[in-house]
Amino acid sequence: MNRQSLKSKVATKIIRSRREVFLRSDFDKLAGYDQIGRVLRQLISEGSLMKVGYGLYAKARLNRITGKPMLSAKGGFAQVAKEALSRLGVKWESSKSTAAYQAGSTQIPANAEVIVFERFNRKIGTDRFELKMVRA
């Protein structure tokens, strides 16, 4: 009878999921709060996860050139940030600069920017990117 370690259970759940962003509470059924925290820290140090905020984690992969972890989402940090806001239940909308880019403008927005319609005071970001939030 094979018993999986908690780390392999969490890693399997992350790999099989279609989501890019995970909340710490997604793993509550597997073990206790402290145990999950230790496993998530191990996965971050291995490069299969990145912490993007308080209790927010995103799938990661190793960059072929630098060997450092990077977000694995096809839309990059902007996709991860928007999915994180949706997972947290925050009402948001793309900002005008992002909407202009999607409409055909040639200027690429430097940072992900969203309009937040309710009270929200969390930082979402990585070591290189940070979500800019504008109040409605």
Score class of each variant (00 low, 15 high):
residue 80 V to C: 06
residue 4 Q to N: 12
residue 10 V to N: 07
residue 5 S to V: 09
residue 127 D to Q: 08
residue 81 A to R: 08
residue 22 F to H: 02
residue 33 Y to L: 15
residue 22 F to R: 08
residue 132 K to R: 12
residue 67 G to M: 11
residue 82 K to A: 14
residue 58 A to V: 03
residue 131 L to V: 07
residue 41 R to I: 14
residue 21 V to N: 02
residue 78 A to V: 09
residue 43 L to D: 04
residue 30 L to I: 10
residue 6 L to Q: 06
residue 67 G to F: 04
residue 14 I to G: 03
residue 112 A to E: 11
residue 100 A to G: 02
residue 113 E to F: 05
residue 76 G to V: 08
residue 61 R to M: 11
residue 84 A to D: 11
residue 30 L to K: 08
residue 100 A to C: 14
residue 96 K to L: 13
residue 109 P to M: 06
residue 87 R to Y: 04
residue 21 V to G: 07
residue 121 N to Y: 11
residue 88 L to P: 04
residue 59 K to T: 05
residue 73 A to G: 01
residue 75 G to L: 15
residue 121 N to F: 01
residue 8 S to Y: 01
residue 57 Y to V: 06
residue 116 V to Y: 00
residue 99 A to L: 13
residue 29 K to H: 08
residue 83 E to S: 08
residue 44 I to R: 03
residue 75 G to C: 03
residue 4 Q to K: 10
residue 90 V to I: 06
residue 66 T to V: 02
residue 56 L to M: 01
residue 19 R to V: 07
residue 123 K to M: 12
residue 102 Q to R: 14
residue 121 N to M: 12
residue 4 Q to D: 14
residue 90 V to M: 08
residue 18 R to Y: 09
residue 118 E to K: 02
residue 111 N to C: 12
residue 76 G to A: 11
residue 21 V to A: 10
residue 96 K to W: 04
residue 100 A to P: 01
residue 24 R to W: 10
residue 31 A to N: 07
residue 118 E to A: 03
residue 17 S to E: 13
residue 129 F to V: 00
residue 76 G to N: 07
residue 106 T to Y: 05
residue 101 Y to R: 12
residue 50 M to N: 04
residue 64 R to S: 14
residue 1 M to N: 14
residue 130 E to G: 00
residue 47 G to A: 04
residue 134 V to G: 00
residue 97 S to V: 13
residue 102 Q to A: 14
residue 55 G to P: 00
residue 70 M to G: 05
residue 91 K to T: 11
residue 82 K to L: 03
residue 44 I to K: 00
residue 110 A to I: 13
residue 59 K to G: 13
residue 81 A to T: 03
residue 103 A to Y: 00
residue 82 K to Q: 14
residue 25 S to I: 06
residue 32 G to Y: 04
residue 94 S to R: 08
residue 70 M to V: 15
residue 44 I to Q: 08
residue 133 M to V: 10
residue 126 T to K: 05
residue 32 G to K: 09
residue 62 L to C: 09
residue 48 S to A: 14
residue 36 I to C: 06
residue 103 A to H: 02
residue 113 E to D: 10
residue 2 N to Q: 15
residue 49 L to I: 10
residue 115 I to E: 15
residue 63 N to G: 08
residue 8 S to W: 02
residue 30 L to Q: 12
residue 41 R to E: 14
residue 26 D to M: 10
residue 99 A to Y: 00
residue 131 L to S: 06
residue 54 Y to F: 10
residue 97 S to F: 00
residue 90 V to S: 07
residue 124 I to K: 12
residue 26 D to V: 06
residue 11 A to L: 11
residue 92 W to E: 01
residue 130 E to C: 02
residue 29 K to N: 13
residue 132 K to F: 04
residue 128 R to W: 05
residue 14 I to Q: 05
residue 27 F to K: 10
residue 60 A to R: 01
residue 30 L to R: 06
residue 58 A to T: 07
residue 120 F to W: 02
residue 80 V to L: 11
residue 95 S to H: 04
residue 24 R to Y: 09
residue 77 F to M: 13
residue 125 G to C: 11
residue 109 P to H: 02
residue 66 T to W: 03
residue 20 E to G: 05
residue 86 S to Q: 15
residue 124 I to Q: 08
residue 65 I to F: 02
residue 47 G to Q: 00
residue 123 K to T: 11
residue 119 R to V: 11
residue 9 K to G: 01
residue 58 A to E: 05
residue 14 I to M: 08
residue 7 K to F: 07
residue 50 M to V: 03
residue 136 A to E: 15
residue 77 F to R: 07
residue 72 S to Q: 09
residue 65 I to W: 06
residue 26 D to G: 02
residue 85 L to Q: 03
residue 9 K to W: 04
residue 70 M to K: 10
residue 130 E to S: 04
